[in-house]
C-alpha cells in the first residue's frame, strides 16, 4: 500500500513539475499559485484574465475529479469555521508578504537555486511542522 502511495506521489509530483516547466516554456513565468491567484484581485503583475483562466483550469480539474472520485478532494479534518478562516487569512497575508507559497518558493524557487526561496521554504516548513506538533501532539486538537 505504501509503495502504491509513494509511486502516486512521484507521478503527481512529476506532473506538477511538468506544469511548472510548461508555464516557463510557453509564457516565461514561474508557477507560483499564490501570486497567480492574488493577481486576480490586484491585477498588479499582468493581465487578470490569464490568472483567471489558470485558476479555472484548476477548478475544472478539481470539479471533474470530485464528480468521479469524491474522496480525492477532501475537507480539512479541522471543521471549526473560525480556525479555517484564520488559517486562510494567515495563508493569504503570509504568501503575499513572503511572495510565494509551496509552488513558487518550494518547487520553482528551489529549482532555480534561489536563496530567498530556500530560506522561505525552510521557514514555512518549520513553522508548519511546529504548528502541527503543537496542535496534534501537545494540545491534541485534531
Amino acid at each position: 500500500m505504501d509503495i502504491w502511495q509513494y509511486s502516486n506521489g512521484i507521478v503527481g509530483g512529476t506532473i506538477i513539475g511538468l506544469a511548472a516547466t510548461l508555464l516557463l516554456l510557453l509564457n516565461g513565468r514561474v508557477l507560483g499559485i499564490s501570486g497567480i491567484a492574488a493577481n486576480i484581485i490586484t491585477g498588479h503583475s499582468y493581465s487578470r484574465k490569464y490568472s483567471i483562466s489558470f485558476v479555472c483550469g484548476l477548478l475544472i480539474a478539481g470539479w471533474t475529479t470530485f464528480k468521479i472520485v469524491p474522496a480525492a478532494l477532501a475537507d480539512s479534518p479541522v471543521t471549526d469555521i473560525k480556525v479555517l478562516a484564520l488559517a486562510g487569512l494567515l495563508v493569504g497575508v503570509g504568501t503575499r508578504l513572503g511572495n510565494g507559497c509551496t509552488s513558487g518558493h518550494g518547487v520553482c524557487g528551489l529549482s532555480r537555486f534561489s536563496k530567498r526561496s530556500l530560506v522561505a521554504t525552510i521557514v514555512f516548513m518549520s513553522t508548519a511542522i511546529t504548528t502541527v506538533y503543537l496542535t496534534r501532539q501537545i494540545w491534541e486538537l485534531g
Binding site: V78, L90, V91, G94, V119, V123, F124, I129, T135
Partner: peptide, 23 residues
C-alpha cells in the same frame, strides 16, 4: 520574507491547505 513565510506555515499547519490544493 521571513515573517510572511512564518505566517503561511502556521496557516498551512493549522488546517493542511496551501493555496494550490485549496483552489
Amino acid at each position: 520574507l521571513v515573517l510572511g513565510a512564518s505566517m503561511f506555515g502556521i496557516g498551512w499547519g493549522l488546517v493542511g491547505f496551501c493555496p494550490g490544493p485549496a483552489l
